[in-house]
Amino acid sequence: MAVIVKQVKLSWLDRTYFWPVFKGMVITFGHFLRNLFTSTPKRYTVQYPDMKRVMPEGYRGLHELKRHADGSIKCVACFMCAEACPARCITIRAEEFSDLNLTQGFEEKRPRVFKIDMLRCIYCGYCEEACPKDAIWLRKDYELSAYDRLSMQYGKWDLMNTYAEEDGKARITTDPKPAVCSQKASL
């Protein structure tokens, strides 16, 4: 595509060169002074390990598997997220959950294994969109690193606890016993 380059006519003052340089120096000195009298934490730079950037709404970071109030997992192992995933990083093994049926407020399936390979995940958020139960969320944690590949395989309990401290929830490592009088009955 041809582009017509606009020829800028410089005034004689600009062509002396010294005047524009002088103007530029005033600008840079303004910046210098402004920064000189601003304390370091208030400048633009986020000094990372000491200060952390607040991520905007809608940021897609580390996943969380949501749970009900009684601590049981929301996921029903429908495989929708695994199907939607373009990176094929989600592995689910389903298991039978309970003898009680759906009308009594219980799902009949739940994941026995729910694994996300964080090295393959591209944080596109399709799993979140695909989920019919709103059970998987991509949230704001972006500090994902490990010393080996195995540590980047997040299992079911890792994923359920990723934001436990932040939200003030208890860390859980076992599925709670199903109880009839759970709030899920109102479904």
Partner: peptide, 13 residues
């Protein structure tokens, strides 16, 4: 440090 301040950075600290 001066260049950092001119460019709204912090510089080696």
């Amino acid at each position: 440090r001066g260049s950092a301040m001119i460019q709204d950075r912090i510089g080696p600290n």
